[in-house]
Design a binder for these strands. Structure first.
Length: 303
DNA sequence: CGCATTTGACCTGCGC
DNA sequence: GCGCAGGTCAAATGCG
């Protein structure tokens, strides 16, 4: 399988500060502040200037906090990833001990097979061919999407273009915010599930975990010729803009596959790829009208 | 009336 | 074996 990783490390999160462009945010802001002050020589606008500087400082602080948050998230992701690699290595060493999957999941699979038994036998053949490997590692693609929302917004809705039907909600131990469970309802047999929960650390961030792959095109993107999975970027790393803000997608697909347990895409770690990602992020931000409008508003002191 | 959402009950895996 | 926690089911409820 072509599972790919977004190898995010803390350095990348610092790259988000645009350090890679040779310009530190602070420096840029300071230059900007002096520019503003120099450009406005009227003594009557002093108060306005002070106000502007204060607001810019606020933005700097906010940027700092966001960078720290991304850093923490990346750190945790890397920790989890290394743990998962350790676990998968263990499994390989032990001759791929059968995973203790829940009966419900196997029932889901059997239901799928029942549904498809008359029309499609390929799925059962596929399972037979990979009998020795845990189904989870083969069939379940897991990716995580971080969606910035307003903290006051209590709805656990992540607009990704697909149609979701909520089938459950649960409060988990590690997070006081409830977790909502969704199934893709666009196609009746689409196996994709989605869990949405607010981040315990930052209530303004929704964490959507996608499991599985859509067996149909994205309803909203089908017109543009994009194939399945592009809407949530399953199986790939992506940064994209949305109405509510930029989405950061992390693919948590396990390294274990039918072929091997090694990372199949080392290029992602390369500086070139990270540079590409940075450029994509910068491009997304500058192209995002919401962001540019907010920036303009901040400059104009209208926040 | 049909569909989506809510929510308590139930099921299953896991650790002790 | 028991209890806990995560995940799912399905009846009740709400809404257009």
């Amino acid at each position: 399988m072509d599972s790919t990783y977004l190898e995010l490390d803390t350095s990348l999160s610092f790259d988000l500060n645009l350090n890679s462009y040779g310009v530190t945010p602070k420096k840029e802001y300071k230059e900007f502040q002096t520019e503003i002050i120099n450009s406005k020589k009227k003594p009557s606008v002093n108060e306005e200037e002070i106000l502007l500087v204060e607001k810019l400082n606020q933005v700097i602080e906010e940027n700092k906090k966001l960078s720290e948050l991304v850093g923490v998230m990346c750190e945790k992701y890397n920790n989890l990833k290394s743990q998962m690699e350790l676990l998968s290595n263990k499994n390989n060493d032990q001759g791929l001990v059968a995973s203790k999957k829940r009966k419900a999941e196997s029932m889901d699979n059997s239901n799928n097979n029942v549904n498809q038994v008359n029309t499609d036998s390929s799925s059962t053949e596929e399972e037979d061919s990979c009998n020795k490997i845990p189904k989870e590692a083969i069939k379940t693609k897991i990716s995580r999407v971080f969606v910035p929302t307003e903290a006051s917004d209590t709805t656990l809705v992540v607009k990704d273009g697909y149609q979701w039907r909520k089938y459950g909600q649960k409060v988990t131990r590690d997070n006081p915010c409830p977790r909502a469970y969704f199934r893709c309802s666009f196609a009746p047999r689409c196996p994709v599930k989605k869990k949405v929960q607010r981040s315990a650390e930052d209530r303004s961030v929704l964490v959507a975990t996608y499991e599985g792959e859509h067996n149909h095109p994205n309803p909203t993107q089908a017109k543009t010729g994009l194939g399945p999975n592009h809407g949530v970027a399953l199986g790939s790393a992506s940064i994209k803009s949305s109405v509510s803000g930029p989405l950061v997608t992390l693919d948590l697909t396990q390294p274990g596959s039918c072929n091997d347990g090694k990372n199949s895409s080392p290029d992602i770690k390369s500086p070139a790829f990270q540079q590409f990602m940075i450029e994509q992020m910068a491009s997304s931000l500058t192209k995002d009208p919401t962001f540019t409008a907010a920036l303009a508003a901040a400059i104009a002191g209208k926040w």
